[in-house]
């Protein structure tokens, strides 16, 4: 075989093997592509708060009914609760309305007819998974990783802090009537507490 033909064949072989085996892409492009595949917890939380939750008013238990049943028939009351695991911490989605009796740096306190306990709407520390788990509408089995689901909880709490609470805190005054939907966390093995703390998700001053 003549030298030129050999060179051509070698070059063709190198081109064939080398084609697309080395290529350059911007790292930012690769990261953006990965990001596009990432779960968008913020969008999920926004959709849940704005669309899913208002579409399921039946998922919220009237707070007076829950309060009375907790005393009369705790097992029945806890049958309305939800959680991602079968542990002692259980979550309820509740609704009701009550008169604002006091406001401090952490809570707005309500007197709700038919509820013997003090009702405290959390207005500063929005902590835990009551907003995510109370309704039972969000399940771990929807998510690729538990981290995705846990990030939803954080985003929901952020939305409550940054969107639900500021207009309420700016306008709320003792004596006014407040309509609320929110999450409540209770321990299955403990007696009903003296104060029911509600993580507010929908608030309306009437």
């Amino acid at each position: 075989m003549s030298k030129p033909i050999r060179y051509v064949l070698v070059a063709a072989a190198i081109a064939l093997v080398g084609y697309n085996s080395i290529y350059f892409r911007k790292l930012s492009d690769v990261r953006n592509a990965e990001k596009a595949l990432d779960f968008d917890a913020k969008a999920y939380a926004l959709r849940f708060l704005d669309t899913t939750l208002p579409a399921h008013p039946d998922k919220a238990i009237a707070l007076p009914l829950l309060a009375q049943t907790l005393t009369a028939d705790p097992a029945r009351a806890f049958s309305w609760s939800h959680a991602q695991n079968n542990g002692n911490n259980r979550f309820f989605l509740v609704k009701g309305s009550g008169k604002l009796t006091a406001i401090d740096s952490e809570y707005a306190y309500l007197a709700v007819e038919g509820v013997p306990q003090k009702v405290a709407l959390a207005t500063r520390y929005i902590i835990g998974t009551a907003a995510r788990d109370g309704s039972g509408l969000i399940s771990v089995n929807e998510f690729t990783t538990t981290m995705d689901m846990n990030t939803v909880s954080e985003e929901l709490n952020k939305l409550i802090r940054n969107r639900v609470l500021p207009p309420f805190k700016a306008a709320a005054k003792p004596g006014e009537t407040v309509q609320f939907t929110g999450g409540v966390e209770l321990l299955r093995d403990a007696a009903a507490p003296d104060t029911l703390e509600v993580t507010p998700m929908i608030l309306k001053i009437q």
Binding site: N85, V140, F143, T146
Partner: peptide
């Protein structure tokens, strides 16, 4: 179930 969380 795809995932079953156990309480701690």
């Amino acid at each position: 179930p795809h995932k079953l969380p156990i309480p701690v």
